[in-house]
């Protein structure tokens, strides 16, 4: 199998675990189909952004992540789970101020810590935080659309 296809399949498999886990647990605790759709759409976007950014970094800029990208996928999933939890505490259809606060905090910690880390780790941290941020934004958009229709 072509190594890029192999990597993509592996990524999707690794990403499928958190998707299923988050969706199932969310459904068990909240039973909100609209929000579940939003979470699922957000996850797909995260996956697309993550894989795109990873391929761009590894192919275009020849950065060898040596297996750390799998940890980054799980890392992203944890951040997304946190944001999904925080979003549930916000008002419906509005970008939660708590979420903005959370992203400000993790941006400050990540940027300051990453200064002295190898470029591979900095790249992965940026990809993780950005993809989960974009995924969260899509989750909001979907939720708004679902509420309006």
């Amino acid at each position: 199998m072509n190594s890029h296809v192999y990597l993509l399949v592996k990524f999707i498999l690794i990403a499928a675990i958190p998707i299923i886990a988050t969706l199932l647990t969310h459904f068990y605790f909240f039973r909100n189909i609209k929000r579940l759709t939003g979470i699922f759409a957000g996850y797909l976007v995260i996956l697309a952004v993550f894989i795109g950014a990873y391929l761009l970094a590894s192919q275009k800029f020849n950065i060898d992540f040596s297996g750390l990208q799998e940890i980054a996928v799980i890392f992203t999933s944890i951040i997304y789970t946190i944001t999904t939890t925080i979003q549930d505490s916000g008002k419906k259809g509005r970008l939660s101020s708590k979420l903005i606060k959370f992203y400000s905090l993790i941006a400050v910690i990540s940027i300051s810590t990453a200064i002295f880390l190898p470029k591979e780790i900095i790249t992965l941290t940026v990809i993780s935080v950005l993809s989960s941020l974009i995924g969260t934004a899509v989750q909001f958009m979907m939720l708004n659309i679902a509420n309006e229709t």
Binding site: I17, P18, A21, T22, L24, T25, H26, Y28, F29, F30, I74, S77, I78, T81, I82, T84, T85, D88, S89
Partner: peptide, 13 residues
């Protein structure tokens, strides 16, 4: 519920 959701989802992941 939120706490349990976060802990369960993280644990399963």
């Amino acid at each position: 519920g939120r706490l349990l959701f976060f802990l369960s989802a993280s644990a399963i992941i």
